[in-house]
């Protein structure tokens, strides 16, 4: 996926900073960062430029925003994150493309990048 734009949403600043840091390194592009799902949704409504959402769905509004994103454009990739197996099931039913069960590691995020960004030998384009 060329010129991919990724948004990371997590209320936990430590986790969010790590995910943003790793993804920035992987795709060599600026990665958007949001503390809550509604802020990400507001940005998406205004710009619609986000290709991949990495979205904590265990907190308030995460699943709701996931549903809205998929309703608006099913082609946008949504990677749900949570420490709850119930959220995993709900996210799957709402159309999430991937689920990151907390706690996850760097190799798990690499797998996400490989699956949705760096498919079949392609990679991202430098800015």
């Amino acid at each position: 996926m060329e010129n991919v734009k990724i948004a990371v949403v997590d209320g936990d600043a430590t986790v969010r900073a790590f995910v943003v840091n790793l993804l920035t390194y992987c795709v060599n592009r600026h990665v958007l960062s949001f503390e809550d799902a509604e802020s990400a949704w507001d940005h998406f409504q205004g710009h619609a430029d986000i290709d991949i959402f990495v979205l904590e769905v265990g907190n308030s509004g995460g699943l709701d925003v996931l549903e809205r994103i998929k309703e608006r454009d099913a082609g946008r990739i949504c990677v749900a994150m949570s420490s709850s197996s119930e959220d995993e099931q709900r996210a799957g039913k709402l159309g999430a493309d991937a689920f990151l069960a907390k706690p996850f590691g760097m190799d798990d995020l690499f797998a996400v990048v490989q699956s949705f960004v760096a498919e079949e030998g392609k990679s991202t384009t430098a800015v």
Binding site: D12, T14, V15, S82, S83, S84, S85, E88, G92, G95, A96, D97, A98, F99, L100, A101, K102, P103, F104, G105, D108, A111, V112, S115
Partner: peptide, 16 residues
């Protein structure tokens, strides 16, 4: 549908 699942096993899920 195909859901990519990564991270902790079901029984080990918890906050980071």
């Amino acid at each position: 549908e195909t859901l990519l699942r990564r991270g902790a096993d079901l029984q080990d899920m918890r906050e980071m």
